[in-house]
Design a binder for these strands. Structure first.
Length: 578
RNA sequence: UGCCUCAUGGUGUAACGGUAGCACAAUUGACUCUGGAUCAGUUUGUCUAGGUUCAAAUCCUAGUGAGGCAACCA
């Protein structure tokens, strides 16, 4: 028993990314009593995007891995930007991804009283003071990194004087920006964040959560470590740009420790620690809330949940399954290296998931009539089709068949290249699930466009199997002309035309918008497609994965189908190369 | 420039002093009632220069390149 324990403490599992190892080492060493508490701390000032999903998977994932818990906390210390609408949608998105914070929901605003108390304590112990310098003046006093700054004239005023001033700030006696509370640290530190950082500012603004109770609000650098400490968070993970803030984070934790305000859990004093990892970047999109907001406000997209947006809600409407997003987040890994992930990796993860789960249907997007001349005019019959070849339990369905069908115009070629295995005069193809068909002739209009494809079926090939076992290379999809239903579809493509829309700065990114990123068309589908419910996925064979849009559907209850992603198409890839 | 950080195929990541591996992308073939899926194969890499060591992607030194910080935003 004893030796077992020793082995555990000395050999943390040497696998997983660096943050995993960091936590594993703490657990093995018995730090915080071996408990792990993480947190995901969004500011409710925008919608969550795929970059946040990476952080969510990390924060909740590490908690689960070490049998701990992950808090959800609204980091709402700036009333000017935050709202309930954002907070509600953030919660919805996290749940949709499949994570649960249980009873551990927090709001920074709920800790304003304690933050205020800590600020007063700092003033009393001479570690904070009220400064009246204007922002311009302060900029000059703070100085540049290469040389020490200058002390604020208020730096050495007495605690009594500062306390009185701070209380008057709280009482609303001063206008915005005329005064602020600064931590008294080190004006000559090479780390700018140590040069007496502002920890409270005056903002006469109603907070979506606390209303008019406050007119002073804490700054991030002060609030965040307090939030972590008060909640008893053990491991606080954030993105790389906060690396230089870490000494200040630790400074605040030290002060709380001196004040005896750190949480004691099971006899262990919980001292939160911060570590940083690289944020996610994706090709062909932008990931900053600010820029996404610009797209929304300039009507370049249809809102935060436009299926072209890299937001969680946009991807949901596009038809990306939550598991695909989680698998993607796992596969990009956690490092400190600033990298850009190929969008195709995300798409491939989505295809992998949908290939397993989505039912197949036949739909024709660019129809041309195909007539089976040896099939009786008034006859119709039904053929069995497999719903999902990757999942036998999905069963089969019947597809109606008749003399006149629609097929893709692209599936016919007048002068086909040698490796074209589709319709051409004299060639035999398989009509998926139905029969073998040989094209005999076509009818063209005055412009040379094919209006009808004619041919004959092998009457012994019903169901699509060759009676003599001959191989037929090409199989094409079709719908029966008199049975087909018309469905609205939205074909989406990437939002930007270049891998890095910010290649010449964030002010010019809109010029790289892809004008062709949405294409609304009609398609003809087999009748069963009309029965799809909003929120269901489908693969239209040989075309792509589609998602019945939960927001829009027609009066006849046929949904609008958003194209989630195309199928891989090695024929198109090869032929476009030539 | 001051402080902090990072550097492995086209892209992203693994290797924790001992055979540079995996995924995506690219490419060849097999198979196939989706030119999908599946299976098999191929191509491409340790930023540079020194040092320590029997042995370095890994440790040390210097250089180079990239990023972050200098809001009363988070």
């Amino acid at each position: 028993m004893n030796s077992d324990k020793q082995e555990n403490t000395n050999t943390p599992k040497q696998q997983g990314h660096f943050l995993y190892q960091w936590i594993a080492a703490d657990v093995a060493a018995g730090k915080n009593g071996g408990n792990v508490v993480t947190r995901f701390p969004p500011e409710p000032n925008g919608y969550l995007h795929i970059g946040h999903a990476k952080a969510i998977c990390l924060d909740f994932g590490m908690a689960e891995e070490f049998n701990g818990r992950c808090h959800l906390r609204m980091d709402d210390t700036n009333p000017l930007k935050e709202s309930d609408e954002y907070a509600d949608n953030i919660k919805y998105d996290i749940k949709w991804l499949g994570f649960d914070w249980g009873e551990y929901f927090y709001s920074a605003a709920d800790m304003f009283d304690q933050m205020y108390q800590i600020a007063e304590n700092l003033i009393i112990s001479g570690q904070a003071y009220v400064c009246s310098l204007s922002q311009e003046e302060w900029k000059e006093y703070r100085g540049v990194p290469t040389e020490p700054g200058k002390e604020s004239p208020a730096r050495n005023t007495s605690p009594e004087e500062n306390l009185a001033l701070f209380r008057r700030m709280k009482a609303g006696e001063f206008a915005d920006g005329t005064k602020c509370l600064r931590a008294k640290i080190d004006m000559s530190s090479p780390n700018i964040h140590f040069r007496d950082p502002v920890i409270y500012r005056i903002m006469h603004a109603a907070h979506y959560h606390t209303g008019d109770k406050w007119c002073i609000y804490p700054m991030y650098d002060f609030a965040h470590p307090i939030e972590d400490a008060l909640e008893g968070v053990t491991h606080s993970m954030c993105t790389l740009e906060f690396e230089v803030h870490r000494p200040l984070y630790d400074w605040v934790i030290d002060r709380m420790d001196e004040m005896g305000m750190l949480v004691i859990r099971n006899g262990n004093k919980i001292r939160p620690q911060q570590r940083e990892f690289s944020r996610l970047s994706l090709t062909y999109t932008v990931m900053s809330k600010r820029l996404l907001l610009q797209l929304v406000e300039n009507n370049k997209v249809d809102g935060w949940d436009d299926p072209r947006m890299p937001t969680i809600c946009g991807m949901r409407r596009r038809g990306y399954p939550p598991m695909a997003i989680r698998n993607f987040c796992d596969s990009v890994g956690i490092t400190k290296f600033i990298s850009t992930t190929d969008f195709s990796l995300l798409e491939e993860t989505v295809r992998a998931e949908l290939n397993r789960t989505a039912e197949r249907r036949l739909a024709v997007f660019n129809p041309v009539k195909l007539i089976i001349d040896n099939y009786p005019e008034d006859q119709e019959e039904f053929f069995d089709a497999v719903n999902n070849p990757e999942d036998e339990s999905a069963g089969t369905r019947k597809i109606p068949f008749s003399r006149e069908l629609y097929v893709e115009a692209d599936d016919y070629m007048k002068d086909p290249p040698r490796k074209f295995f589709r319709l051409a005069i004299g060639k035999e193809v398989r009509l998926r699930y139905a029969c073998l068909f040989t094209c005999t002739h076509v009818i063209e209009d005055d412009n040379g466009n094919v209006t009808e494809i004619h041919g004959v079926m092998d009457m012994d090939s019903r169901g699509g199997t060759a009676p003599d076992g001959r191989t037929v290379r090409g199989t094409i999809h079709w719908v029966s002309a008199k049975h087909a239903v018309e469905i609205p579809v939205r074909l989406y493509d990437r939002l930007f035309t270049v891998e890095d829309p910010l290649q010449d700065g964030s002010s010019n990114f809109m010029k790289y918008l892809n004008e062709d990123s949405i294409n609304e068309v009609k398609a003809l589908a087999e009748p069963s497609v009309a029965k799809f419910k909003p929120g269901e996925h489908v693969q239209f064979e040989r075309s792509g994965y589609f998602f019945a849009d939960p927001e829009d559907s027609r009066p006849d209850n046929i949904p609008v189908f958003n194209r989630t992603t195309t199928l891989r198409d090695s024929w198109a890839k090869n032929s476009s190369k030539k």
